[in-house]
Design a protein around this nucleic acid. Sequence first.
DNA 1: CGAGAAATCCCCCGAATGCGGGAGGCGCGG
DNA 2: CCGCGCCTCCCGCATTCGGGGGATTTCTCG
Lengths: 203, 203
Amino acid sequence: MRIVLVDDHRVVARSLKAFLESFDGLQVVGMAASGEELLEKLDEWQPEIIVQDLLLPGGIDGVETTRRVLRRQPGARVIVLTASTDEARMMGALRAGACGYVRKDAEPETLLAAVRAVARGKQFYDVPPVAGAEEDLTPREKEVLRRVALGRSNKEIADELGVADETVKTHVTHVLSKLMADNRAQAVVQALKRGLVSLDELE
Amino acid sequence: MRIVLVDDHRVVARSLKAFLESFDGLQVVGMAASGEELLEKLDEWQPEIIVQDLLLPGGIDGVETTRRVLRRQPGARVIVLTASTDEARMMGALRAGACGYVRKDAEPETLLAAVRAVARGKQFYDVPPVAGAEEDLTPREKEVLRRVALGRSNKEIADELGVADETVKTHVTHVLSKLMADNRAQAVVQALKRGLVSLDELE
DNA sequence: CGAGAAATCCCCCGAATGCGGGAGGCGCGG
DNA sequence: CCGCGCCTCCCGCATTCGGGGGATTTCTCG
């Protein structure tokens, strides 16, 4: 099994390598710290399985990385290995074509099982604890929410988006309602918890 | 070297074990997923070195874990291994007596170097990229900030703290100034980025 | 003792926020 | 075709925010 690890935490990546390679038949043929790096080396490595964190630095995030990898190598199998219970992002990865999902706080055997299941062409999902009602914000609402998290005022957001501030107020009201938040501060926290925006991308 | 790993991500912990034990003289004699678990097994394991994440589940966080461990085993050496560039929390751990600090996105050799340095009685700090002007909020200001992050209004905070809302306004103004934030939403983001509050503790 | 920080309270004031409602246009799928 | 969701805009209104000023007490530290 030719495996590639994608994790910006090099200590973690190298350790995963040691762990996985302690089992027969598993070989880590490459490690990347970002989506860009993975895409660069993809042809060279020709991995069968990609174990990938969702929280990656650089221009393309984990979900986008998965999407692009599978477009280039439809035969590859992507296992998402992530720390946070990041439902929105996880759903995104699955929709992007990942066929495995393991949380970092799972038993190591779980990851191993995932690798082996996926290698046999099966899917493997370390089931999330709760289904969780998918709060879907409209594209516009997400844009507004992102800017709210950046501390922008309604008027500033209106200027940036080229609309009237009444429009922004409407969007904000809808966002607050959907996130069950009483004000922008709570909306920001909720957005972060649900992975609608990430701390790292703010600034 | 008797090493104990503390990380709630079991996949990561087990992998670290594999990585560290691939070197002579290093032996992982125990792994814990929380501060409580570590404290329970401390007498049994008798570790010389403890490699510990700062973001731990359960009642006691990473900093508090370090503090308690060193109170019980002053001879033990604690290396903090953390993912986020979490300055406030890091400083807390150092003040609590940790003698090593390595970021998870460092080179694996860095962790190895840290273990070996610490084993020889030295300190090892994988220097943070920027010194970062330590914004020290007063205790009261931190209390207020936490509640701002919870989405409380000034009046609500005033009631909770049993003071007048003008007082809260003063504190909030000071916090905004110190965090260089223009409004509460930005203050929340800054607080999260600096580890003054953590996402997990918010509800 | 005196300096200074911390915490508390007070006033004024303009701007931003959040809520309620209404309303028109546009595109997509039944 | 007709409805429905999305985006857009508008009005009014009570509340909250954030900045400015100044004031007091308590406490620590040199």
